[in-house]
Every structure is written in structure tokens, then in C-alpha cells.
């Protein structure tokens, strides 16, 4: 933000007299909440909880709640740091220009202080109340999302989503580590599922909001390599995703309670990816297949992890 601060009550009008106070004190609590990206947090909480429930060790409900809370808060911290770093980028995109920083409702200093408070607080509580393995993975996930994805990759390479997707794949592994204190094959497969799910999920979105990314200068795959290549990559990444998603069943780590829904969900996902790959539409209005795959991919992840946790609970 540059120039004189303007009134959030009457946008466009400069605040007279006590401008410095007003420009830093008008933030609503909802703006702080918005910094944490609550919708992303819902997926983080859910997958972390499923990781915790899938673990072979029963964890005390208070400790389990604390672990999930810490993972959620750390996710919020990473989201806030992402918005702190990308305020200029967010201001250029229709989808994000209403966020608290580009809209001028909070300052970058406020966002940074809030994010650091959440990050340090969540990691400290995780280390003291749960265990060091979970706290270590939590630190790694925040650093990965902020430094590797946001700062390093996002604006430099169309592979941003591929490698950056690992950041979003941490929660179930941290949930598992919170219960057991270690990481074995199943949590690694859960990590792999989210890691491989991220590219087709985000690229199907990027296909129909391509203009937004291009205007903001973000080298998302549809911007840098075109629609046809992106659609091909959506299908190519779906193949290892299906393999990883069926692996827990194939390797005997789960039973039919997971196996049958996983098979059905992956058939639908694969069919959706094939439809996307076959679509030739250039205009977002003709991208029904992409919109459907994007919407289904969210349901897919929720249902797959719910089935995994249910299966493990049945086995237990």
C-alpha cells in the first residue's frame, strides 16, 4: 500500500488527524481470521484428523484435540505468511483482491506479527503437549509452504504446484506422528496421495481461471505451457494418484471398507481426468469438465481419507 491511508469506513477518503492510529487499528477480527485461509484450514484439519484416527495407537482425546488444534493454527500461520508475502500479487487477481491486505484493512506488519505468533505458539504447544516428532514435522510443513512454495517456486516455475503440493500433504502425517511419535508406510502413502492429488486439483482450477494468473504474472502451467499441455498433465498426474490411492488396499494395510470406496472414487476421478484431457474448449464457459473435476477432487479427498480412517477404526 502506498500513499496516505484511507478510511475503511468511507473507502477512498483519507483519514484526517489520527491517520496512523486508524490505519493500523481498523482491522476486524474477521480480517485476522481471513488471513488464516479458513477454507483451506478445513481440509488441513480433516486430513490431519484422519491421519490421527488411522494411527494404530489410541491417543487421549485432549492430546488429540491439542494436536489437531496446533496443526490447524500452524496451517493458519502458513496461510497468513503467504498472504503477507503475496499482498502485491493478491491485489492483481480478481479472486484475491478482497483479502484483508490488498483491500487495506490490515497492514503487512500486523499480518506478519499475527502469523509469527500463531506459528511459534502452535509449534511450541505441539512440542510440549504432544511430541517432538509432530512438532518437527509441523515446523517443516510451515517452512516448506512459506519458503519453498510461496517465496521460491510460485512465481518462478510452472512446477510450483507440483513441489509446493508437498506442503499441503503434511497434515495426515503430522496427525499420525502426534499419535505414534513416528512415521511409517501408511502415513507416507497418505502424504503421497495428497502430493499427487494437488496438481490435477489445482490445474483443473487454473484452466478456467487462467486469465487471472496471467494478469498476475504467476507462471501456472496453463499460462506457461498452454491449455492442451495442462490437460495432458492433469491426466498424467492422475495415473500415479490412482496408484497411490489404491496402494494401501493393495499392500494389505487396509481392508474393503477402504478398498471399495477407493476403487469407486478413483474410477470417477480417472474418468473426469480423461474428459478434461479430451476437452478442447478455450473459453472458461466451455470448461464444464474442468469445473466438475475441480469440484469432485475436493469431495474425492474428503471421502478417500474418511474411508481410510473408517477402515483403520474397523480393523482396530
Amino acid at each position: 500500500m502506498s500513499g496516505a491511508p484511507t478510511s475503511p469506513v468511507a473507502p477512498g477518503l483519507p483519514l484526517a488527524g489520527a491517520a496512523p492510529l486508524a490505519s493500523t487499528d481498523f482491522g476486524d477480527w474477521r480480517d485476522y481470521l481471513a488471513l488464516t485461509k479458513p477454507r483451506v484450514m478445513a481440509l488441513v484439519v480433516f486430513t490431519a484428523l484422519m491421519g490421527l484416527l488411522a494411527a494404530p495407537v489410541a491417543v487421549h482425546p485432549v492430546i488429540g484435540f491439542t494436536a489437531i488444534l496446533c496443526i490447524a493454527v500452524a496451517g493458519g500461520a502458513a496461510g497468513a505468511l503467504n498472504q503477507w508475502y503475496e499482498a502485491d500479487l493478491d491485489a492483481k487477481m480478481k479472486r484475491t483482491r478482497g483479502r484483508p491486505l490488498p483491500a487495506g484493512r490490515l497492514t503487512r506488519d500486523q499480518a506478519f506479527g499475527f502469523a509469527m505468533f500463531l506459528a511459534i505458539g502452535s509449534v511450541t504447544i505441539m512440542a510440549l503437549a504432544v511430541n517432538l516428532a509432530a512438532a518437527g514435522l509441523l515446523v517443516l510443513s510451515i517452512l516448506f509452504y512459506v519458503l519453498v512454495y510461496t517465496v521460491w517456486l510460485k512465481r518462478r516455475t510452472p512446477q510450483n504446484i507440483v513441489i509446493g503440493g508437498a506442503a499441503g500433504a503434511f497434515p495426515p502425517m503430522i496427525g499420525w506422528a502426534a499419535a505414534t511419535g513416528d512415521v511409517t508406510l501408511l502415513p507416507l502413502l497418505m502424504f503421497g496421495i495428497i502430493f499427487l492429488w494437488t496438481p490435477p486439483h489445482f490445474w483443473s482450477l487454473a484452466l478456467f481461471v487462467k486469465t487471472d494468473y496471467r494478469e498476475a504474472g504467476v507462471p501456472m502451467l496453463p499460462v506457461s505451457h498452454g491449455l492442451a499441455e495442462t490437460r495432458r498433465q492433469v491426466l498424467l498426474y492422475t495415473l500415479p494418484l490412482v496408484t497411490a490411492a489404491l496402494a494401501p488396499w493393495a499392500l494389505g494395510l487396509t481392508g474393503l471398507v477402504y478398498g471399495i470406496p477407493a476403487l469407486a472414487l478413483n474410477i470417477v476421478f480417472l474418468a473426469g481426468a480423461v474428459r478434461v484431457a479430451g476437452n478442447r474448449a478455450e473459453d472458461p464457459a466451455g470448461m464444464k469438465a474442468e469445473k466438475q473435476l475441480f469440484a469432485f477432487s475436493i469431495l474425492y479427498l474428503f471421502a478417500l481419507f474418511a474411508a481410510l480412517a473408517a477402515d483403520r477404526l474397523v480393523l482396530a
Binding site: 478510511s7 475503511p8 469506513v9 468511507a10 483519514l15 484526517a16 488527524g17 489520527a18 486508524a22 487499528d25 481498523f26 482491522g27 476486524d28 477480527w29 485476522y32
Partner: peptide, 20 residues
């Protein structure tokens, strides 16, 4: 700062304090 802005500022500050 106008009285209206002052009231809005105090309302938001009060809400933040309740949440905190």
C-alpha cells in the same frame, strides 16, 4: 477522525478484545 469513524474504531476494537 469523524465521530462515525471513532465509533466504528471502538466497536471493532471492542469486538477484537472479546474474541481475544
Amino acid at each position: 477522525m469523524s465521530p462515525e469513524e471513532q465509533r466504528e474504531l471502538e466497536r471493532r476494537r471492542r469486538q477484537r478484545n472479546y474474541v481475544l
